[in-house]
Design a protein around this nucleic acid. Sequence first.
DNA 1: ATGAAAGCGCTAACAC
DNA 2: GTGTTAGCGCTTTCAT
Lengths: 336, 336
Amino acid sequence: MTTTIHDVARHANVSAATVSRVLNSRTDVASHLTERVLASVATLRYRPNGAARSLRTRATTVLGVIISDITNPFFTSMVRGVEDAAQTAGYSVVLANTDEDLDKERRYLEVAVAEQLAGVVLSPASSHHTRLDVLTDRGIPVVTVDRRLRDRSIDSVTVNNYRAAFDATGHLLEQGCRRVGVIAGPAATTTGSRRLAGYRAALRAFDVADDPAHVVHGDFRIDGGRSATLELLARGEVDGLLVSNNLMTIGALEALAQTGHQIPDDLAVVGFDDMAWAGAMRPPLTVVTQPTYEIGRRTADLLLRRIRGEELPPQRIVLPATLAVRQSSLRAAPMR
Amino acid sequence: MTTTIHDVARHANVSAATVSRVLNSRTDVASHLTERVLASVATLRYRPNGAARSLRTRATTVLGVIISDITNPFFTSMVRGVEDAAQTAGYSVVLANTDEDLDKERRYLEVAVAEQLAGVVLSPASSHHTRLDVLTDRGIPVVTVDRRLRDRSIDSVTVNNYRAAFDATGHLLEQGCRRVGVIAGPAATTTGSRRLAGYRAALRAFDVADDPAHVVHGDFRIDGGRSATLELLARGEVDGLLVSNNLMTIGALEALAQTGHQIPDDLAVVGFDDMAWAGAMRPPLTVVTQPTYEIGRRTADLLLRRIRGEELPPQRIVLPATLAVRQSSLRAAPMR
DNA sequence: ATGAAAGCGCTAACAC
DNA sequence: GTGTTAGCGCTTTCAT
């Protein structure tokens, strides 16, 4: 039927133990035996049985990636980076969606344990309520991505959200906007809270009053972005808008079109997270771009180091996010 | 350490075999024992070890989804449908990207075998060259999605691409366009070839000459769409454009903006595959919409039936794709 | 340096 | 109906 390690052993005239040693690249095997084994593996097209291996070793070579929404292009691009890094190291990747739901998140963390995943990349639903003990108790490493936890002992890879939001808001103020609204993310996420904090800091820096009416929270999804924007407009006119993620930006643009606002003349817009189509829009969209693929790679690299057992202090890797200025935020008569 | 089936057996005062029977919901266990076992499972928070199970049964409860590009929103939405259906049936899902590369595809099919996946959802890189024997020889069911194989014995779930392209092209012709270009997909894929065939049929139906200069092939990616469009424009003016998938549409729009074409006045545009942002674009984009999530669900349902061993003739499920007319294709003075 | 043998946690024959 | 037993394919002591 399927060829096992014993078939290879017989073919190479060695014991199964020796084949196993060769396959796990241990150095204590005579080189002529190594060659013979490798040759047999090749001719028999032998593939080790993953189930048997992980039953025995109590570990797999599978990484879990638990994110809120696989249809969000930010995450898919990030996942690509994780996949590539994992692949190179001989690991495969499984994905799960939480929909920002703490219950679903907890369930998937348990699955990760049951499946004995080698490690987990997590974009936590909440900086305070997400509990990782299930994993850490059993020594399964976790790295959070895009967002952090309050718990500083957990590795994370993020961008400087505060700074990015500060710059984006500053850019709108430099363009002459004085009533700048923000569609903020869920307060439970660090992307939500840090970006809002950056926005507020920019207002202060420019001596512009921080009007509570100018802040509306959305849920990082399209519909939420649309309704939050309509709510904001209902509270009074604004002349600039910062939207805290990509999907909400789509909703916001729909709302603005629907209410007859001209961009950037009536209202200058800056979104968060570049998207493949941001440049194809009319007017092209000014956004905070994140190195999504790189974020994924770095996250996976860090996770793999933990899996290998490297001892390092808790890492908080921060990558740069930069403002890509396009027409949606450029006003005719900018202020100096 | 971790609780095993024997711990549960001891706690419930039965044999491991009985616990196994209960867990696999076999009917030949006395109901009072079933209760006791279930209670023990709950109090001990027992989770069966997947590795041990699949080592024994030579099968997993994992589905593989092998697609060309996880960053393409068509596929992610489809994958959501697969995930939800799989989840309900107690299966989990792993993803892989082929980048339309036959080698990569073959490699992942081998991984599917090695990992003893229960079944595979595949969007084949080529209708002629993709070989599925690796899987079918070992009884691993496959359903192709989005695209078909020449081999009619393989189940598939697609939309009626021919008809959809026919309608989309017909719509452009009804709008008065007479020089309609098409950015076609890779000829190796059925989505590429069927959509092109539908386009040609519409030209015939409207008695419009089929100018070879109006057909350019792209690779289903953004850059390919951009360069194909520039190539098309270089060959001579067109007044209508059909783009055969979503990512190429983004590239096409960039090319049109860059060359100063006004949509829809200079050139009416219809894209394929709805995207969350199609309605947020100015002008809103006319596209062929596919029931992506539903496609995923139906695919998974079919695959799960095959996994359960149901005997049915080869299925070729065809779901409806419909034209969502928005402004990008609406001309001032349409022809009747 | 290499082989023999035990056992990871589970299910499927086979007894009873 | 339920328990006993063997063994899935691999790695890892422990001898040699």
